[in-house]
Design a binder for these strands. Structure first.
Lengths: 112, 112
DNA sequence: TTAAAGTACATTGACAGACGAGGTATCTTG
DNA sequence: CAAGATACCTCGTCTGTCAATGTACTTTAA
């Protein structure tokens, strides 16, 4: 069966970058919004979510800071850096090219 | 950077199924045709190719037999089973759904 | 004629990303 | 006060991709 987890591999970075392209946000919120957008079909697992944040932060694509919540649990907010925004644009471009190629490869010879 | 190898993960099965949907073929030939179709951008590495063949054969999606070449190196041909053809159709359907969702997730909030 | 390149298949071990399972802490609600 | 929601984090496992390496035969060019 075509596995969503495998498809997601390599896409998670870009999903998070996209989520931060509008405004700063935090893990739990992004996780929920991803679920909403895909009607529950994609669920970024927490382990995946936080390891991806670490990876992106180490690479200088995002920066994090603790929010000053006066109520509720503490939140770690993430901010997209310039470098991160550039990567985001590149990844979207790459995705278009790559997904187009994959679609071509998924067709039978007759359909190409 | 958005990595083709990661994107390919989970797609390789379907690429091979697609390649066999028309007629029986063998590894080296499929490998070259994938390169041609993508203008050299996708190269199924041999290790990936042959482990994927094993996986699909163990799952009953393809069957293999040795060709009777009277010249040149021996070739192992693969044949798509009914089960494999069904999987192929399912995977194409899944890909459409999944890639659509990923595309949506790659947009900024404003673009959705 | 012989070395290099092409055809063709195969395996091993390393690597990296997704995830299950488990944990911590706070706040809200019945 | 217990249960569930909010919110974060980490460890170890699993699995697919790939680099490296090997085999064996054929074709081509020096």
């Amino acid at each position: 069966m075509l596995n969503l987890s495998d498809l997601l591999r390599g896409c998670t970075d870009t999903i998070l970058l996209a989520a931060l392209a509008g405004e700063d946000s935090y893990g739990y919120s992004i996780s929920r919004s991803v679920q909403e957008i895909t009607h529950g079909e994609v669920q970024l697992k927490e382990a995946t979510l936080y390891t991806t944040f670490r990876r992106l932060e180490n690479a200088g694509m995002i920066e994090s800071y603790w929010g000053d919540e006066n109520a509720g649990a503490r939140r770690r907010y993430y901010h997209l850096t310039d470098k991160g925004r550039q990567l985001y644009e590149e990844n979207r471009e790459d995705w278009r090219r790559y997904s187009g190629m994959i679609e071509k490869l998924f067709r039978t010879e007759a359909q190409r």
